[in-house]
Amino acid sequence: MASIEFKKVTKSFGDSTVIEDLDLMIEDGKFTVLVGPSGCGKTTLLRMIAGLDPQTSGAVLIDGKDVSHTAPGQRGVALVFQNYAIYPTMSVRENIEFGLKNNKVSKEERKELVESISATVGLSDYLDRKPSTLSGGQRQRVALARAMVKKPAVFLMDEPLSNLDAKLRVHMRIELIELHKKLGSTFVYVTHDQVEAMSMADTIVLMNKGEIQQEASPDTIYREPNNLFTAQFVGVPPMNTAPLGKDGASFGFRPESAALTRSATDAWFQYKGVIMTREMLGSETIYHVKGDRYTFMIKCYEDLFAVDEPVYVGVPADKLFFFGADEKRIAKNAPGYQAYLDWLRRQVDE
């Protein structure tokens, strides 16, 4: 078990700097998910922990020890790759054993470890098979077993579920959460899929353009986004945001915070529009409402409206978010908040 710390870390590839002066503390034993759009630097961070692409400057600490000059194989970390990176010429057993052999683990101990781990991930019947004869899900398990068998202090995963089909992905998500509970080691998981991040993480580190946008629990990230980027990245569909028309500020609300009605109500923010599209997803329906000035996505748990129907979108005051010109969220107790709330109310009245 180990914590991971980045201290003033900079990473450049040639002339382009991907990450600059980054500080981050990943807690011991937590399931931390690095999430962000592609090219945001999340995989770069992961590879720095593994030592595959060491940082250009600054220090990376694992368990309080500076590992900047430690080889990948000596860092006590295991990495599961997106394409699994299984050794194709070795059998499942040899794949799992390879790391142990290199670490000079005795033959009896190896046999015991391989057998117990393969039982855990359900590969016992496949130990003598070649990877090419396995399904995608089984290969995934080989990659996991290979990582687990070394008993690493830190588990790194680079989009390990993105090559699986949707059903298997949801299943593996639960297995990974259980695995983390059982092993209790530090998990660092990279994904671009915010649903994956929300469902598995103890802590989400949301990144964009090499900078950390917010580092918090899924709950906090969802309810109290730091800034406009976070608000627009998290949630399906993400938060509705629009310019406020004052000081360059914006306002926003979650799709499920609004109510659709056929006649006007006394909601704090009210907006009249027409339903452009309707996506019926089973338990919920997503309406795309378009008016003169704004377009909103609204999530309803009842399917009451039809396309082309004129509707009112109503949002209560306590569900509204405001973001300053610097895109940072304005807290409810901050001085400008009430003024913006009143401004938005007046807009509606006009």
Binding site: A71, P72, A85, Y87, G99, N102, R146, K150
Partner: peptide, 22 residues
């Protein structure tokens, strides 16, 4: 794939071993 070689490095294999065994 480079990931296979990186995997082997994480498995503490020397470059010589990577050549010979992978």
């Amino acid at each position: 794939p480079t990931e296979i070689i990186e995997s082997a490095r994480l498995d503490n294999a020397s470059e010589f071993k990577i050549m010979l065994k992978i």
